[in-house]
Each structure stands twice: as structure tokens, then as C-alpha cells.
Design a protein around this nucleic acid. Structure first.
Lengths: 207, 207, 207, 207
DNA sequence: CATGAATGAGCCTTCATTCAT
DNA sequence: CATGAATGAAGGCTCATTCAT
């Protein structure tokens, strides 16, 4: 599909990818302009459409590219020896926070995608999102010792509650950051708050 | 502000409102075309801008209009005599499900707004959103008997976990529906599932 | 033609006239909006077009109205006993400067008309302008003693040169003022400069 | 800035330039329609804005283009050997009249610009106009022998009076032409009349 | 491979003017 | 007399995409 693009010398690839990330992160899919992308990347109009049939394909490629980088590094850093669910989750959150600092643009882009996706690309992405979510959960929780959870309630539902809690918590933190004047995310406060939720969830869901 | 519009005969108002809801729900703010709206509403280009100074004002008006309808009816149906938290929440979810069936367009529109908001209208809506959320929580939980909750964990956080759980649950249900061929929402299944979460949350968070 | 309008109570007439002067002075004929005029005057759209068939007629009326005020007052103040050409001219310039301070809006409007007139109204105004100019010269120089001028050159041409000199001088002064930060016109400097030109012209054109 | 446009093949450039000159000369800046220009030039909407970011830039370009042509040719034809002020001026007027016949459209356009400038472009042009005027006067009078002028009056003011005289004279001639049915300019009469003013001015301002 | 000129539908908005009330 | 809702053409401008070179 994008083999032509991938044969390009790395430096040019990067220029294009970064330009696209920047534009789409700033303006979203709909208002993101291919004009601006080629200008920023220093390539011609035609070339962009030579590699990526159209704007949508470009966007999809950029999303996959970013997602892969993030996901790969994420699993590389997870310690699969740790079998305690909450310890594993603590790790996951720590890694996420770390990566947010390392790849702020890429992360911001993925975030935007998950929020803002226009009608144009909704269908494609709704599918992609559930796919991704399913894969993640299965992989991220590999080898977990589930016997520590209380037996009187459905385990799958417990896990959902816990996941949702942390997802919503981080959503709120990001929303908060967006309202602050500096748009700065206060990672320390997030981690401290997360810890409190960990305590609660451990107490109520572990035997 | 919109007094000119509100003096119009109800039928025309409705044609315009419905056309706008339809267009914005389908295509979002940025891609939603005022051209389409006037065509669908059967009015002239100029008239729309006679009532609503510009696209943004129209969108804001439509949002407020929809939100008010939904919120008003919601609180009218809630039984504030019921002081048990989970019973109250059961009610709330029941009412929501009911309203989803009565005003599917309006509901869908509000949902879209909460997700998709373009850069153009972000600032206005981020404020509006937090405002709305705060008001709702305070009002919806009026008169609740919180003594039933266990004392060994922070009550505020418990409530957040519970809210988040149902929010995420309904998000997932809607996402599921969108993937199905008919886009039909299976309310019965949702309520049955919600009930299961109620059981779990009551068990772990009540004394 | 505008008898309907002139039968209106004076206060309303003034509101409309002032609103129109303000709008046309600020934005010129083309960009001047009848919408703004009715808003400022506090009357309805329809009424304006009831009195003045269309925008052009309104503009013409406003121009004539302003012009008459200015011209009437001008001739009332001229001392026709003074028969020396240059003394008469000194008077004229003094009166103009005075009136500029008394009716700044009206004056500014007339000035704008003489400069900016759009294609739409050019034909009508070119005629009006030459008409006006001819009338003015004839009237303003009534009773002048032309025997003081040297006989070896054509008197008509001398008068033209003198008139043109003062017209251009004031054009330049106005242009200068427009370039200054405050847009303030320095009347004193103008009169002092005019005096110098008077000296020169008297010396070279009088016997 | 306009390099894209200037790389175009000459024929297309001309089509666009001529279309723009025609439209702006006829209707002025504000009412001049880019729609009409592209229609007349036989190009697409987008292309015009590909070359010229917006209407204002287009107008500025056209003005500079026209001005340069006129000015270049003007100075090429002036005989700088001639040091007599009035002889030099006679030349200048002769050349102007000649050029008016060669480039009637361009000349008419420049003239319009100097008169009609809309609020939109006023600031840019007020600066440009004074700049241009200063350059011209300095250059056109290079090498003139000013000792022939009478010493008892300020030379600068004399020069101003003379310049203004011929400017106003040609303004009047043009205004006259516009009122005639054919809009034809009678160059012969102008030159004959100019000659009479030359005689007068020489007599009164030379020693 | 690479260019960038060219397209033209589409965008939001403004406006003078009309006309039923 | 007076209103202001209604019109719809026209405005400047943007944009993804194509294609001859």
C-alpha cells in the first residue's frame, strides 16, 4: 500500500510525517490542509498524492505509524514477570506518562484522533479503535494472576471497571490541562491521584 | 440574541432546527454546511444569517436548544424522594434510555458535540462542558443518603468510579451499535448489563 | 422627489441624515451599508427605501443636503464689499477653515465624495461637480476689481492658476494630515502657508 | 512574491493583467470582481489566488506593473541635456500626451488609482503615492538651471505653483473628455492650451 | 520520480431591495 | 406610514485532487 513511500530515504519520510502530524494535531482532520503539509515538508503537491492516494489515506498512514511506535515501545518496557494486576497497571501508567514526555507530538496526535475524528473518517476509525483496544487489553494483561480477585463478582466486569476508571481519570486530567493557561500537564499530580485510586480499587476488588 | 428567530412560527423554527441538527450530527461542525441546512429547511441563504449572525452562533443556539430540552425532561422525570444512590442511578439510566428513543436526533447531536468539537468552537465548548457537568452532578444527586457507603474509602472517589463506569458502559454500547449493520441500539441488553454492574458496585462500595 | 422625507419630523430626519453621513464618510459609497444606516438611525429597512428609492438616491440626497448647508453659510459670511481679489480670497479660505471646525462630519463627507466616488455614481457626480464649480467661481468673485491685475496676460488664466494653487495647497495639507498619527489638521500652519502664496501671487500677477 | 506569476508564459500573464486592469479601471477596487477578472482572462478561480494571495495583492501588483511601464518609458524619453525648466516641462507634457495615446488602459488605470482608492487599500497607497511623487519630482527636474527664475520669491513655491497648474490643467482636460459623448481626449487642444500657460508662467516667474 | 500549475465546486457571509402585514 | 422577514445573487477565498511536463 505505502511501499512506495517507505522506500524513500528516511530523512524525507520524516519530514513528511512530521509535517503531517503537526498539521493534523493542530487543526484536526477536516481543517488540516495538505497544502500546509507539503509546504512544511518542502515537497510538491503531486508527490504527496503520489505516495498517499488521498488525504484520508495519508491520515490513516500517519495514525498507524504513530500508533505502532507508541505501542511497540510500550510493550518493550512492560515487565511481564510482574503478575500482580495492580502492579502491572502501575507500570503501564508510569510508562505512558514517560512516553508522553518523550514523544509529545505523536502522543498528542493520537489523543486528538481518539477525540476529534471527523465524520469523514469515523467509520474507519471506530473499527480501528475497538480492534486496538481489544488487542491491548489482551496483551497488556498477559500472565496476570487473577486469583487474587474476589470470587463473588464477575472478573471481566471488575477489570472493565478498573480500566475505565483510569481511562476516565486521565481524560479528566487532560481536559483540565487544556483549560489551564499553559496547557501543561501535571504528571506528578496525576500519578499521585492514580495511586489513591489504586488503593481503593485494590481494597474493594481483591480478596 | 435569538429573539428574532424565536418569534417565528413554530413550524418554520422546527424545520430550521431539525435541518441544522441533522446536518451537524451527520457531518460535525466544520463540514456541516449552511448551504445544506437552508436547502433542507427550505429557506433562503440570507434568512439563516438574518436569524443567526453566523455559523458558530447557529451551532451554539442549536446546542443550547437541544441541551435544554433533554435536561429539563430529565429532571422532571427523576423521583427525588428516592434517596438510595443506586436506585436513583437506576432511574437516571432508565430515563436516559427512554429519552434516547424519544429524541434520537437530539441525543445523537449532543453526543457528537461532546466528542467532535472543532478547533473553531473548542474554547466556547470546553467551558460550557465543564459548567454543564458540574451542575448536573450536583442536581442529579440531591438528597442522596450517602451513609450507606463504606467509610474506609474516600466517598468522592467512589462516586467518580461509579459514574465513570456507567458513562463508559454506555459509550461502549453506542460504539457497538454504530458497528452493527442497522445502527440500532439494543436498550434491553444495555439495561440488563447495567443491572449487573449495579450489583457489583453495590456489593463492593456499600457497607 | 424627497418631499415625503422632508415632511417627516425634524428629529427623525436628522437621525437618518446623520447615520447616513457617518456611514458613507467612514466606508464610502460602495462599502457603506444601508443595513448599518437603518440600525444607527433606529428605523426599519423598509422605511429607508420608502423615502429614498434606492441607495444611490439616498446618497445623492445626502450630498445635496450637505452641500447646501455648507454653500449657504459660506456665501452668507463672505463680505461682498471687499473688491480686492486677494483680500476676498483670504476671506474665503478663512471661512472654509472656520467651517471645517464647525461641521467636521459634513465637511469630511463632502471631501470624501469629491475624492472617492465609486464607479456606480461617477457619471452623476462628475456633472454635479463641474456645475458646482462653475457656480461657485462666478458667485464667489462677484464684484471683484480686476483692473489691478497686469494687462499683459490673460486674466481668466491668471485666476485659474491662483485657484488651482490654493486648491492643491489644501489637498496637500489634507493628505499630510491623513498621514499623521492623529489625523489632526493644523489650520494655523495652513493659513500661514497660504499667506506666503498670497504674497507671491500678488507680486507676480498684480500690476 | 509574485515569482510564480512571472514565470508564466507571457501570453497568459498578459491576459490576466489586461483583464484585471480592465475590471479595476471600470469598477474600482471595491466593486472590481475577481470573478469577472478570471472570466475575462479565461482562467479558473483558483489560479488567480494561486498567483496572488488575495484581491489586494493582485491590485498592488497590477498597480506596480503599470506604474513601472509608464515611468520607465517616461524617463527614457526625457532629454536631460535640456536645462531650461519650461522646455523640460514642455517635453514632459508632450511625452505624457504621447503615452496616453499608446497605453490608454494603463494610464487610465493609474489615474483611477490616484483618485478612487477604497478604504481597504488606502493605507498602502497613501504611502506609495507620496513616495512616488517625491521620486518623480526629484528625477524629472535633474540638471535644471534654476538661475533663470526671479530672485524675489521663494523658488520652491514657484515650482509648486507651476506643477500644480499643469496637474490641474490636465485634470480638467480629462474631466472634460469624460463628459463628452465619445470620451475622446483632444490632445491637440490640450497642448495648445498648455502652451498658453507656459507663456504666462515664463513671463511672470523668469527674471 | 517529481513538479506545481490548474481546476472548479464549495465554503461562509453580505447586501440592496421587495412585499405582505 | 412603518415593519422586518425574506430573497438570492454575488462576493472573496480555500481545497483536495489531477495531469502535462
Amino acid at each position: 500500500m505505502f511501499s512506495k513511500f517507505l522506500n524513500l530515504d528516511k530523512e524525507k519520510q520524516d519530514r513528511i510525517i512530521n509535517a503531517a502530524i503537526k498539521e493534523f494535531t493542530q487543526k484536526g482532520y477536516d481543517r488540516g490542509s495538505t497544502n500546509e503539509i507539503v509546504k512544511e515538508a518542502g515537497i510538491s503537491k503531486g508527490l504527496l498524492f503520489h505516495y498517499f492516494q488521498n488525504k484520508k489515506q495519508l491520515f490513516l498512514f500517519i495514525f498507524d505509524y504513530c500508533y505502532e511506535i507508541v505501542i511497540d515501545e510500550f510493550y518493550k518496557k512492560i515487565d511481564f514477570q510482574e503478575t500482580d494486576f495492580f502492579m502491572r497497571m502501575r507500570q503501564a501508567i508510569g510508562i505512558k506518562v514517560e512516553m508522553l514526555a518523550t514523544y509529545p507530538d505523536i502522543f498528542k496526535f493520537i489523543q486528538e484522533v481518539f477525540l476529534e475524528e471527523s465524520a469523514e473518517i469515523k467509520v474507519e476509525f471506530d473499527k480501528k479503535k475497538t480492534e486496538i483496544t481489544h488487542i491491548n487489553i489482551e496483551k497488556a494483561y498477559e500472565g496476570i494472576d487473577y486469583t487474587k480477585f474476589r470470587d463473588d463478582v464477575d472478573l471481566t466486569k471488575i477489570l472493565k471497571i478498573i480500566n475505565w476508571t483510569f481511562e476516565k481519570m486521565s481524560d479528566e486530567a487532560l481536559a483540565q490541562a487544556k483549560l489551564s493557561p499553559t496547557h501543561e500537564i501535571d504528571y506528578l499530580t496525576i500519578q499521585r491521584e492514580a495511586e489513591e485510586y489504586f488503593q481503593i480499587l485494590t481494597r474493594v476488588f481483591y480478596k
